[in-house]
Computed example of a mutant assay.
Amino acid sequence: MSKIDSANMLRFLDMLLKHGNYTKAAKDLYISQPYLTQTIQNAEKELGIEIINRKSSPLQLTDAGRIYYQYLNSLETEKNNFEKQILRYSSPNNTVIRLGVLSSLGTYLLPLFINSYLSNHPKVKIELHEDIPEANEKKTLNGEIDFLLGQNPETISPKLTVKDRGTHGYFAIIPKTSPYFQKGRKSLEPNSISLKNLLTEQLVLTTHGSAIRRQVDYLLQKYRVTPNVILESNNIFTTAKLATSGLGVTLLPESIYVYPNADEFNIYPLPQSVISLDYFIAYQADKTLNQAEQDLIDSFLNNLQRNIDADPTLL
């Protein structure tokens, strides 16, 4: 394998693919064009392959070059993972807390407490693992991450200790394409529309397996509605955007902010007695918490409670 530093080679190739020629790439890399050309040629000589297809304009990778490029990326990923793991042992004076959360959920939960927590714990390093809930729950059970942030703890493994705080509500987005839309009204009165009727509309939903979808599916079963799902997405912000653009009705937790537009859609609050959620932090049941970890849990719960007590309305 090439003796040239993998990080530098990956950086060189990234810039070369970005610009499609050696001159502009070298300029952005702050190196000479002959040096960049020679570096690529030396790598090709060592590997016994052509990395760059010089017959194409702009320059592109050859088939072998793409394999090499993927290899370089994998090396950097492995190196980054190694550095994160070893940091827990190489820096005994610092605490690394690995926190798992769905990225769309993290945009709401993390700002509530991370800033204040880290200001009180400057030596703590937070390592985020943004993945789907099922994957992060498995990582928590396996000890690959320390804490899991999520919503609706009812289905979490009994091998995890769960600390939850709630309750938060849901609202529906009713676009102007729906017969239930009322032009000129940002939000509609609670209980003014039959939820069963609303669920028979064209729906834009998150994919199966998400905590939100599980609750929506429960409602569909409760009201014996066969849903007309136009599109599914694993990103709650995508479903929100599609609903507000008129594709169909969607149900969102109040943690998702939607800027009102009375000419395009209504916001319809749903009763918490019908659909609601609790946010939680979970960790291995047999885990012995250090002070920094206990403070993280307390910070999460206390700041979330303050958010509830403030009763912020997104409507």
Rank of each mutant, 00 (worst) to 15 (best):
L205K: 02
P133C: 03
G20A: 05
E127R: 00
K55W: 06
S255V: 07
I145C: 04
L219V: 03
N94E: 15
L102G: 09
K3T: 08
T77Q: 13
N115W: 03
F237D: 10
A262T: 10
E201Y: 06
L36Q: 04
Y279V: 15
R185D: 07
N42Y: 05
L47M: 09
N290W: 04
L315A: 13
I145R: 02
L199H: 01
M15N: 11
E154A: 14
K196N: 14
F12R: 03
F171E: 06
L10W: 11
S57C: 04
S276I: 04
T244R: 08
E154T: 07
E293L: 08
L13D: 01
S6R: 12
T62P: 00
N228M: 10
N53K: 06
I193H: 06
Q85C: 04
P122T: 05
F181N: 07
N234R: 15
R54K: 15
R165L: 15
A243Q: 09
Q294T: 14
R214G: 09
K186C: 11
Q221L: 08
T200N: 10
S104F: 08
G209K: 08
K3M: 04
S119K: 15
A64Y: 15
K159T: 10
S276A: 13
N307D: 15
N21V: 07
T161N: 01
R98G: 06
P179D: 08
L36W: 02
N120F: 12
T200K: 07
N53G: 01
V225C: 05
N191A: 03
I212N: 15
T77H: 12
F171S: 01
N81V: 00
I281Y: 00
L112R: 09
D164Q: 12
K138Y: 11
I173P: 05
P179E: 06
L87D: 14
A43I: 12
K139A: 10
L75A: 01
L148A: 04
A282M: 09
A243F: 02
P190F: 04
L105C: 06
L314E: 12
I4P: 05
P158Q: 14
T250N: 11
Q221F: 12
T39D: 06
Y69Q: 05
G166I: 04
F237V: 01
E44D: 08
K241M: 11
E293P: 00
S210Q: 05
T62L: 11
K45H: 08
T62H: 04
